[in-house]
Amino acid sequence: MPGLRSRAAAVALVALVVMLFATPLRGLWARDAGPWWLPFAVWAPIIGAMAWLVREPDAR
């Protein structure tokens, strides 16, 4: 994975994923309680987005 741009993109993506998973999920539970299925409901669309992103690996 040569090139500065790829490395920068990797770092940005890592940061994004960490933010995505850590901060908002913590925020969701900040009020102590919420429906128990909420974390899974947040998780599912992320997986959906990942499936959509890789739907045609050859075309990208």
């Binding site: 994975m1 790829s6 993109a9 990797a10 993506l13 890592v14 994923v17 960490v18 995505l20 998973f21 999920l25 998780w43 992320i46 997986i47 990942m50 890789v54």
Partner: peptide, 12 residues
């Protein structure tokens, strides 16, 4: 979720 994050980095 960590594995999911790792999978998000799959292309990289």
């Amino acid at each position: 979720l960590g594995v999911t994050a790792s999978c998000a980095l799959l292309p990289l």
